[in-house]
Simulated scan of single mutants.
Amino acid sequence: MSERITIEKAVQMTGFPAEDIRDWAKSKKIKSYSYRDGEPLIDAASLQNFISGVKRQGMQKLYLQEIIEDKEEEINEIIAWYDDYIFCLRSLTTVSPLLKIIIAELASFIEDKKARYIFTEITGGARILDVAKHCGMSYDGMCKRYNTILSHLKSDTCFMLEYHKTITNQELEIERLELENRNLEYELNRLYEKGLKAGLQFNISQSLIHVPLEAAQRLCRPLTDLTLSPYIRKILENLHIETMEDMLRYIETKGLDSLLEIPGFGKLGLEQLRFQLEKHRVLDKNGYSDLYQYLVR
């Protein structure tokens, strides 16, 4: 015969609230027996079997929930893939003209007319077999020819990239030379004005300061590279400060703190500007710049 226990002992054994156990007994989910005080006695074996069943169902529900979540993720991935595919189809009318322009630009590197035709047709979406028949070639032969065209085209475009890199370096070299030229102009103007005031006649020495390429790159960096508020940027533009060179010349003659005299240019704006100049290696923490040596005073 199974043991009969009180509600209080059932709570101690199972850890479930007394209210739940009473509800189970009332709904006949577990066996119970009436007691003289009105509080039922619970069949211990029936209670344990019921709780075990609840736990098993909980595990099954958890397992099913994991399966459902996995399926939902799989469905979402499929939907996302089709969304991308549909987007590509819908945007084909927009992408296609751009693709044709790119193909035409690349085809301009191909001198041979037949090779240019093969590249344009196949890259544009024509069937390789159709192009091969039109050119009187086999399918394998057309594949090899198209692969050869792509290889040559790749080498040509690599050459263009190197050429573009060379042009960029030359442009930087020109900026460096222009900086040296401005230095010379500053020195000549200074000596000329000094000579006029003193009534002297003299030969101006053409002393040139060699500016390294890296220093020229930093000096020619535009002011727009700095992350500044629009108001501060506008103030600097009004002062004709467009490059780091202009900024250093202004700091050298008037000092960075002189900007505080301009209405609206507060300490916060000054700190923002100083931080950006330090970040781009124009000034150091002490307010000095190694670029001063490349500027004629």
Rank of each mutant, 00 (worst) to 15 (best):
K279M: 08
R233A: 14
A25F: 00
K254C: 03
I30S: 04
D156F: 04
L219G: 01
P230I: 01
I101L: 12
L106N: 10
I79C: 07
C143D: 05
L98W: 04
N169W: 07
R249G: 00
R116F: 03
D290A: 12
D246M: 04
I167T: 10
D140Q: 14
Q293I: 09
G141Y: 05
P263H: 08
I128R: 10
R56G: 02
I241R: 01
N76W: 03
D70H: 12
K61N: 08
S229F: 08
N286D: 13
V211T: 11
D290Q: 11
S229V: 10
G53T: 09
Y85P: 00
A198Y: 04
I5M: 11
V282E: 03
T148G: 03
N147H: 09
C88L: 09
S289L: 02
K113D: 14
I209A: 00
G287L: 03
L259V: 03
G58Q: 13
N76E: 12
L226E: 06
T253A: 09
D130Y: 05
E72G: 00
E193I: 06
V296R: 12
L270C: 05
G255A: 07
P212D: 04
Y294D: 01
A10S: 15
R221C: 11
N189A: 13
H280K: 11
M247K: 01
M160H: 14
S52D: 14
L184C: 07
R190K: 10
L99K: 15
A80T: 10
T6Y: 06
S289F: 03
H280I: 00
F265E: 02
T168K: 15
K55W: 07
I42G: 06
V11F: 01
N238G: 04
T243F: 11
K100W: 03
I232H: 06
E77T: 07
L208P: 00
E178D: 14
S258M: 02
F202A: 07
S27N: 08
A44F: 13
R218K: 13
P40S: 01
D23E: 14
I128T: 12
Y82N: 11
I122E: 06
L226D: 07
S96I: 09
D84A: 05
S138W: 02
K197D: 09
A132M: 02
